[in-house]
Design a binder for these strands. Structure first.
Lengths: 203, 203
DNA sequence: GTCTATACGTCGATAGAC
DNA sequence: GTCTATCGACGTATAGAC
C-alpha cells in the first residue's frame, strides 16, 4: 500500500499507461472540438470521432461533464502557455485578450457557456467545482492587478478592488453571450469603455 | 373564416377552451417552478407535477424548450405588472430591480441561465429566439434611458449609449451567475459602482 | 380539439466478459 | 484496460379514444 494509487477516490488515469492513454484521448477530443465546434457534445458522438467507445471515455474521465471540463481546462492551459499574460494591462483588457484567444477555437466559447450554465444547476458537481474555482481564481488575480494599478495611479483609487474584479469578469462573460447571439454587439468596445471608466478618464 | 384562428402556423391553444386550458397548465407549471426551483425540468417530471401526461404538454407548447420559454416569459410579465418600472432610475439600477424580482422566485434565475446557454447552441430555435429578442429589447430600452439621462446631464455624455446598454446588461447577467455560485459576491454593490462610474462621480 | 397510450431513437451510466 | 450488452430516463412523434 506504499505508493499504491488505490487510496484516492479519483483513481482514474493514475497508472503510467493510464495517464498516457488519457492524455492521448484528451488530445483527440480537443482536436475534435477545435475542428467542428461544440455540436453534438454527447459521449457517444465524441467517442466515435475520437475512435473509442463511449464506455472508454467514462472509464478515463468518469462522466461526460468531467470530460468537458478536462477539454476546456486543457485548451485554456495551452492558450496560456502559448501567449503568456503581459504584465502591464488594464483589467478589462486582460479579459479581452483571454476572450479573443478562446474565440479562435470554435466551440470553446459555447463549451464555457454550457459548463457555466450546468454549474448553477444542482447535481452537476464537476461543472460546479470548475466554475466556482475559475471565478474565485480570476477574481483574486484581477483584484490584485487592480490594486497594483491603483497604487501606481493608473486606476481610480476610490474603487473596491474586489468589486471591480467581479464587475470586469461579469462584463466580459455577459458581453460574450450577447456577442454570440448578435455579432454586431461590440464586445471589445464595451470593455474598452469600461477600462476608461475605471481609469477615471474625463473623455 | 371570419375570426377563425386556423390561419396562423402556431395553431396551438387558440380556441377559447384551448387557451384557457393552456393558461391553466402554465399557471401550474409556474407554481411548480416557484415551489421547488428548477430541479428536474424534464417534460415528464413537469407533467407529473402539473397532473397531466407529458404528451399533453407538447400538445399545448410544442416542445420542452417552448414550455420553458413560456414559463419564464409569463413569470417576467407578472413581475413587471406587479411592480411597474420607476421612470427615473439609472441604467444599472433598473437591471438591479429586475434581478431582485427574479431572485424572489426560486428557479427563475436558473431557468434564465439554462435558456441563455441553450440559445447559443445550435438547434435550439425557441431559446435562441427568446434570448435574441430579449437582449435586443433590453438594449434598446436601456440605450434610450441612457440618452435621456445624458440629455438631462445626469450621465456622462461622452459615452456611446448602445455600448453602455450592452455593458450594463452584461454586467448584471454575469454578476448574477457569479452570485449564484458564490453568494459573497456583491451583485448590488458592483452594479451601484458601475452606476457611479457612468454618472462620472469623482467619488 | 383535447388528451392518452404507446413506440422510437438517443442519451449517460454501469456491469461483466475478455 | 477496453469492449459489448443493457438499463432507465429522456424528447419527440403519432394513432386513436373521447
Amino acid at each position: 500500500m506504499t505508493d499504491s494509487p488505490v487510496d484516492a477516490s479519483r483513481a482514474r488515469g493514475r497508472y503510467p499507461k493510464g495517464v498516457a492513454r488519457r492524455q492521448e484521448i484528451l488530445d483527440r477530443a480537443i482536436e475534435v472540438f477545435a475542428r467542428r465546434g461544440s455540436k453534438k457534445t454527447s459521449l457517444r458522438a465524441i467517442a466515435q470521432e475520437v475512435g473509442v467507445t463511449h464506455a472508454a471515455l467514462t472509464h478515463y474521465f468518469g462522466s461526460l461533464e468531467e470530460l468537458l471540463v478536462a477539454v476546456y481546462r486543457e485548451s485554456e492551459r495551452r492558450s496560456d502557455e502559448t501567449e503568456p499574460e503581459p504584465s502591464d494591462v488594464t483589467p478589462a483588457m486582460s479579459m479581452r485578450i483571454a476572450a479573443e484567444k478562446n474565440r479562435s477555437i470554435p466551440g470553446l466559447v459555447q463549451l464555457y457557456s454550457i459548463l457555466t450554465a450546468n454549474a448553477i444547476e444542482d447535481d452537476h458537481p464537476a461543472a460546479q467545482e470548475f466554475a466556482t474555482a475559475r471565478f474565485a481564481r480570476l477574481r483574486g488575480d484581477i483584484a490584485e492587478q487592480v490594486r497594483d494599478l491603483q497604487s501606481s495611479g493608473r486606476l481610480r483609487d476610490d474603487l473596491d478592488a474586489a468589486l471591480v474584479a467581479a464587475l470586469v469578469i461579469a462584463a466580459s462573460d455577459g458581453l460574450q453571450t450577447q456577442w454570440l447571439l448578435d455579432p454586431t454587439v461590440d464586445h471589445e468596445g464595451a470593455l474598452e469603455m469600461l477600462d476608461r471608466l475605471l481609469a477615471g478618464d474625463a473623455t
